[in-house]
Design a binder for these strands. Structure first.
Ligand SMILES: [Mn+2]
Ligand SMILES: [Mn+2]
Ligand SMILES: [Mn+2]
Ligand SMILES: [Mn+2]
Lengths: 219, 219
DNA sequence: ATATTTTTTTAGCTTAATCTAAAATATATT
DNA sequence: AATATATTTTAGATTAAGCTAAAAAAATAT
């Protein structure tokens, strides 16, 4: 049986190794969990001892098949609870993550299958992230971010890369939500910001940081 | 902020002091939580230090007003989640308690108010226990148990005194659920058991232990 | 190639929550 | 009232998860 802390570490390592196949650094894990490198080293060694991660001193950490399976279980729970909170309890998309961070640790396999069924087997969470199925299978979504587009191109928002309340509240404020269409007007080389137009509304400016956190599909 | 363990102790002390006003013994607390007396002593001293309980060595423990308020918050969460599990996720009444034991520790005042609203502000949980309101007010239900009735009397089941799966599964099996009417046929002094008749069905025998755990109202 | 800086690990402490065994106190029995 | 038994508390360990500070290794700069 995994502890809450072990589950949080597994999930973090999974997310950090999502893009690249390379091992994840101790510092990256510690930063993501707002803890210290020494604590991360301890836990990584513990996960390795349990066969959930492979680890060589100073070389970073990777999840084993078993570790990946456990991490995906937690991610599944997290995202299903997010859907529940948004759809049934009317929380906003920037409020669900924090509560799901607790709910994801509830231990009851039956509970999560019942919840999935109750919600109508949703495929994506409120931030556009795919929900692993009961067998731990996940669809991979594109990773194209708004930041790589050129003036004149059009796209549709499909996912927010970061589920921090800071980003999501800001996107809400400028009327960017999943599914909206955006047209790139200008790119400003000086600070890598963009002028964009959201679905007929007036043009607005997006910083490079924000643009890098909006996952889109080209239209 | 209370830890999970502190919350479990508070809830246990509240329940144990429900009937009598007297302080609760260390052993009673330890037994209910399946832990050891030494551990209970430690935690009771900690609760007293935090102003949640009043405690004098060898004299047992009582909750303070503050402690009672916190305990009732946990009970409120526990019972609302039980309603959710039964009504929305179709768990049986003997399955909800264990999962609610985990869910009751989720920290989010807004979540529980939204859940309450979503469920239509239920007044009782699946076992007939009253749900404290947001201000910590609870209705007190009668404590008359089937075991004090005499042959010829009729009653309606309003609450199960114990939410263990053992009792509830058994009641299910003999078709006793909340609201059913029961007629006392005979009392057997030898083992204090009863012959009863449930809503027109054939007569059955109830042990004294079971009879003591069924809360009823006379008809 | 050496020296400096950064990253990572180790060593040693701390806190919460448990446990067992022994000591202290309270209760029950003769 | 004295003794025996039961209950409760204390003392001392243990385990999980964190921390800081120092040591070791790797990466970067000169
Ligand atoms: Mn979490
Ligand atoms: Mn999400
Ligand atoms: Mn609990
Ligand atoms: Mn209940």
């Amino acid at each position: 049986m995994l502890t809450r802390s072990e589950e949080n570490y597994l999930k973090t390592i999974l997310h950090l190794s999502e893009e690249t196949q390379k091992p994840v650094s101790t510092n990256a894990v510690a930063d993501k969990l707002s803890t210290k490198a020494a604590s991360a080293t301890d836990m990584i060694q513990k996960l390795a001892a349990k066969g959930l991660a492979s680890y060589y001193k100073y070389k970073g950490v990777k999840l084993t098949t078993k570790g990946t399976r456990e991490a995906l279980r937690v991610v599944r729970k997290h995202r299903l609870w997010e859907v529940f909170l948004l759809k049934e309890l009317h929380f906003k998309w920037d409020e669900v993550h924090e509560i799901a961070e607790q709910l994801e640790h509830i231990k009851s396999p039956l509970l999560i299958e019942r919840l999935d069924e109750h919600l109508g087997f949703p495929k994506f969470d409120p931030h556009g992230d795919p929900i692993p199925n009961a067998n731990g299978e996940v669809v991979t979504i594109p990773t194209t971010t708004l930041s790589i587009l050129n003036p004149g191109e059009r796209c549709r928002v499909i996912c927010a890369k970061d589920s921090s309340s800071d980003l999501l509240t800001y996107l809400d404020k400028i009327d960017i939500s999943l599914g909206v269409e955006i047209e790139i007007m200008e790119f400003h080389a000086f600070d890598s910001s963009f002028s964009i137009r959201v679905e007929g509304a007036g043009p607005i400016t997006l910083s490079s940081k924000v643009a890098e956190n909006i996952i889109i599909e080209r239209l």
